[in-house]
Simulated scan of single mutants.
Amino acid sequence: MSEDKPRARVRIAAVGDLHCRKTSMHSISPLLESVNERADVLVLCGDLTDHGTSEEAHILAKELAGVRIPKVGVLGNHDYETGQPEEVTKILEQAGIEILDGEAVEICGVGFAGAKGFIGGFGRGTLGAWGESAIKRIVQEAIDEALKLESALSRLRTERRVAILHYAPVRDTVEGEPVEIFPYLGCGRLAEPLNRYPVDALFHGHAHHGCPEGRTNTGVPVYNVALPLLRTLPESPTYRLLTLGA
């Protein structure tokens, strides 16, 4: 799918972990009131709702109605909580938000590929598919999510590309969280598709107390844009801005 014409410079605003609740009416829209003037695309990195209910999704849709630029994103683990991710996706897409789950879209000449991602750990701590069948299922889920991202990336034909996840693909951006929960914040397997299909940047959320920036072992910039983390940074931004191009 393609939206709008290619541009020499594309400004991307990215944020995750909005955690829209029943009580969130009129609290999310102010966070994005400047985004139409400052960015060309809004990227949403999962945990868009707090319990994954249709009521929360409808509230979020209303809160984002004032965002006139294209919106693209992925779901997070909270969006699956009540077992209605398809309904959440349907509501958000009817509100003009492109939700990616192994798909790709072109906006303003930039290719966006997205998937939720999954847990599993990083480096030597990456969970291996050995032992109980339950462990093997966890590992396979992480592999499947990495394959979704790879499949989406493989379909892009744009010069500039951006990957979107909810879970972290590198340890760098979860630093600051308790070490004990690192394996639940992401998985290094999610970075493997970028070795074959490099991108200009990757955005994710989920690690509320992590680090805002990191890199894959091949040098791809990774940005943690969880809203609780952004609010701790100097000047307390409510989204991350990144400009691609001249």
Rank of each mutant, 00 (worst) to 15 (best):
I28M: 11
P234N: 02
P221T: 10
S29D: 07
A65M: 14
S236W: 09
P228N: 09
Q84S: 08
L32F: 13
C211V: 10
V15P: 01
L230S: 05
N77I: 12
G120Q: 05
L244N: 08
F182H: 13
R137E: 15
K5G: 04
Y184T: 13
R160N: 03
G73H: 14
R68A: 15
H209F: 02
L185V: 00
R68S: 15
L242E: 04
Y223N: 11
Y184W: 11
P212A: 08
P198I: 08
I12N: 03
Y239A: 04
G83Q: 10
A146W: 04
P193F: 15
H58K: 15
R189E: 03
D79I: 09
A95M: 09
I143M: 13
F203W: 10
H166S: 07
A8V: 07
E37Y: 04
I138W: 03
P221R: 10
T218M: 06
T23K: 06
I107A: 07
A13K: 03
T243G: 00
L153Q: 04
P6S: 14
F118R: 06
D17S: 05
V225F: 08
E37V: 12
H58P: 01
G219W: 10
R155H: 06
G123T: 13
F118C: 14
V222K: 12
L100C: 02
L242V: 13
D79Y: 07
R21E: 15
D172P: 13
Q140F: 10
I97S: 04
A39L: 03
E87H: 06
L229D: 08
W130D: 11
